[in-house]
Nucleic acid binder design. Structure first.
Length: 454
RNA sequence: GAGGUUGUAGCUCAGCUGGUUAGAGCACCUGAUUGUGGUUCAGGGGGUCGUGGGUUCGAACCCCAUCUUCCUCCCCA
């Protein structure tokens, strides 16, 4: 007999945690559906040919590969081993676990292009796997919760994403959050404006750390990376931006007036703002942050990130627009925009702020006590009636000691206990005990249903 | 992938320079109360000290390896 253990970087979700996670996911899915997104699930296992080469060299390393079934060494020839992993891997593994939801989605779109109503809006909530080194908040198995629209470059999608973010976090009672927005084209424009065209990736890696390490260190890093002093001096405009969205737009318009692409980016942001305004969104928690640079390797337009204020935690949601999603699967020129919710982080935020509703973990409302076969028999029709009335109820399955049965109700947080003994059966009135107050009285079944539903 | 860190009862942790039978709180079980939980009281069970080697008369404690935990970097959700 060996001690059981979890595989590294994986977790169990017990009933209590599941109740809270389900609450979060149900809220998000409800909003997705309300905005016309359709559900999609794809297999945990994909062919490695679908997954490899999509996430860079590092990504290929982090893919979980599945050993071929049967004699997995069949195709390996003597001598292959000396050639190393690159030679042996394709001969022993043809499948792997999905690394994210975007690539399987792209595969699905490419395979079903003729059947899909374009633009195609889908949401997908499934676990993904990465052979990463686990840390707090980083696991080898975790859920992604994505919604994307492909097949249109309409900025209406961007506006609707902003709306969905507000609806989701509003519904979760999270009052203090900020939706940060930027545009890849603005970043490209900034690189041009400071005389370092084409180097926005490098620029952004440094700028992105601004709120973490401060202006001086960012400047030092840029200098190290070989940016001219004049370029760095030119960035002062960026460091002096305020939270006021209209002011920022005006400042950038002037700063980037010589960059066509930069202007385009600002125009896109203005149009999105106008659309959001058109929806009549009340009290928008929207900010234009020109230093926001996440996922630069594939985002081409809008970039989003949501921060929970007052909680020491990274972003709780992020997304953006990308071009050519399905290009590697033979379907070019398909633009898409998507948003992803960080379920684990949202869980931590709600937990820390105590925002989970009381009844999120409540299941059974009433427990029927079992004395003997006689009372058990009497309980059956009562159970059925309670359940027909929509009351989650259960009968303790054995005639264990009352203490044990009451303990069970206690531990499960069941608010009512119904005692059905010989006295009660005779009277056709049963003892209903409120576990919180300790009150206990005899009621008819109809009265009991009323009491429990009250 | 690089560096550091952690592991003792179901859980949280004590355990002296290496020295007899490894402790506590909580949880669990039994009884006080054979038709009533949460409180109280009395009693009880539970540990190959992460695992495998080594040093030693003797190892929870020292050494090596390995797994695990957490942290920093890289990268990311």
């Amino acid at each position: 007999m060996s001690k059981p253990s979890l595989a590294r970087g994986t977790r169990d979700f017990g009933p209590e945690i599941m109740a809270k996670r389900t609450y979060i996911l149900d809220t998000i899915k409800f909003v997705f559906k309300k905005f016309g997104f359709l559900p999609l699930e794809t297999p945990a296992i994909e062919n490695l040919s679908v997954l490899m080469g999509k996430y860079g060299d590092e990504g290929d390393q982090l893919l979980f590969k599945i050993l071929n079934s049967g004699d997995f060494l069949k195709k390996v020839k003597p001598g292959d081993l000396e050639e190393g992993t690159k030679t042996v891997l394709p001969k022993v593994a043809e499948k792997g676990l999905r690394y994210d939801l975007t690539v399987p989605f792209a595969r699905f779109v490419a395979m079903n292009r003729h059947d899909l109503a374009m633009p195609f809006k889908r949401f997908q909530v499934q676990p993904v796997w990465r052979a990463d080194r686990p840390q707090r908040g980083r696991y080898r198995e975790f859920y992604q919760c994505d919604a994307d629209v492909v097949g249109t470059d309409s900025l209406l999608c961007e506006a609707e994403i902003i709306l969905m973010l507000h609806e989701v976090f509003g519904a979760l009672q999270l009052k203090d959050f900020t939706v940060k927005m930027n545009n890849r084209k603005v970043l490209t424009g900034i690189a041009e404006a400071i005389g370092a065209p084409g180097r926005e990736s490098e620029l952004c890696v440094a700028i992105d750390k601004l709120d973490k390490i401060g202006k001086e260190k960012v400047e030092a890093e840029l200098s190290e990376r070989g940016f001219e002093n004049s370029s760095i001096a030119n960035l002062q405009t960026l460091f002096s931006l305020t939270d006021d969205i209209h002011e920022t737009v005006a400042t950038l318009k002037d700063w980037l007036k010589d960059s066509g692409i930069g202007q385009k980016g600002i125009e896109e942001i203005e149009e999105v703002l106008e659309l959001v305004n058109g929806f009549g969104l009340e009290n928008p928690k929207l900010m234009f942050d020109a230093t926001l640079a996440r996922g630069l390797s594939y985002y081409t337009g809008a970039i989003f990130e949501v921060k929970a204020n007052g909680v020491q935690i990274g972003s709780i949601s992020g997304g953006g627009r990308y071009d050519n999603l399905t290009g590697t699967f033979g379907l070019p020129d398909l633009s898409g925009v998507g948003i992803s919710f960080g379920v684990d982080r949202i869980y931590d935020v709600l937990d820390e702020l105590n925002l989970f509703p009381e009844d999120a973990s409540q299941s059974t409302r009433v427990l029927l006590i079992n004395f003997d076969s006689e009372s058990q028999k009497a309980c059956l029709p009562i159970l059925s009636k309670l359940r027909s009335a929509g009351i989650a109820s259960e009968l303790y399955p054995t005639d264990a000691k009352l203490k044990k049965q009451f303990d069970y109700a206690n531990k499960k947080g069941i608010p009512f206990v119904l005692v059905v003994g010989s006295e009660e059966i005779k009277m056709q009135k049963y003892s209903l005990k409120n576990m919180a107050t300790g009150d206990q009285n005899h009621y008819t079944l109809d009265e009991i249903i009323q009491q429990i539903n009250a």
